[in-house]
Simulated assay, not measured.
Amino acid sequence: MPHDKTAEDLRAIRIDQFIAHPPAKVWRALTEPELVARWLMPNDFKPEVGHRFTFTTTPRPNVDFDGVVYCEVLELEPEKLLKISWSDRKRADWTVTWRLEPEGKGTRLFLDHEGFDPDDEMQQFSRRIMDGGWRSQHFGAIAAIVDEL
């Protein structure tokens, strides 16, 4: 289902990128904890529905973030779909969904980071910062890691 690109979605970050490798390799970068730590944050992730885990990073007191992201695996279809909850237990109560679709000899990787409150100035600030991070850092790092596999 195509996303409406005509208006900015204040409730979500939506990105897709082609990666010139099959879904199985991209899936590894999204689900092997040591690989995820290289492109996102240190974690205790396990690819099991219901598994609760955390990401840890540098605290950002200016946005009342202590550096811990609390997550749970909500949905999982190997090499196709990974959906997790994403919370700071204060303001953020979001979901992050990764979808992988075969495209030629590679994979189209989709990210939907949803649940931002359009009326909450701090959440909108976080959405803008995270949108930039997903686009400029994380997607490129995922592709580089997959190149190494």
Rank of each mutant, 00 (worst) to 15 (best):
L40G: 14
M41D: 11
M41E: 07
M41K: 14
P42Y: 02
P42T: 12
P42G: 09
N43C: 12
N43I: 12
D44T: 12
D44G: 10
D44M: 03
F45S: 08
P47R: 01
P47H: 00
E48A: 13
E48V: 14
V49N: 02
G50Q: 03
G50S: 05
G50T: 04
H51Q: 09
F53A: 07
F53G: 08
F53K: 04
F53L: 09
F53V: 10
F55Q: 06
F55V: 09
F55W: 04
F55T: 06
F55R: 09
T56M: 04
T57N: 08
T58M: 13
T58P: 07
R60D: 10
R60Q: 12
R60S: 10
P61T: 03
P61M: 02
N62V: 14
V63R: 09
F65Y: 12
D66H: 01
G67F: 15
G67K: 01
V69A: 06
Y70S: 14
C71T: 08
E72S: 01
V73Y: 00
V73W: 02
L74Y: 01
L74Q: 03
L74R: 01
E75R: 03
E77G: 03
E77S: 05
P78R: 00
P78L: 01
P78Y: 02
P78F: 01
K80W: 09
K80F: 10
L81A: 05
K83P: 08
I84M: 02
I84S: 02
S85H: 04
S85P: 11
S85T: 15
W86Q: 11
W86V: 13
S87G: 12
R89E: 15
R89F: 04
K90Y: 13
K90Q: 11
K90L: 05
R91M: 05
A92G: 06
A92C: 10
W94R: 15
T97D: 00
T97H: 00
W98L: 06
W98S: 04
R99F: 03
P102I: 04
P102L: 00
E103Y: 07
G104L: 00
G104E: 01
G104I: 01
T107H: 13
R108I: 10
L109Q: 03
F110K: 08
F110D: 12
F110Q: 11
D112A: 10
D112Y: 05
D112R: 08
H113L: 07
E114K: 05
G115T: 15
F116W: 13
F116G: 12
F116H: 11
D117H: 05
E121Y: 06
M122I: 09
Q123K: 03
Q124M: 07
F125G: 15
F125A: 07
S126W: 09
S126Q: 15
R127C: 13
R127Q: 07
R128I: 13
R128S: 12
D131R: 00
G132C: 09
G132E: 04
G132Y: 06
W134Q: 06
R135G: 11
R135Y: 12
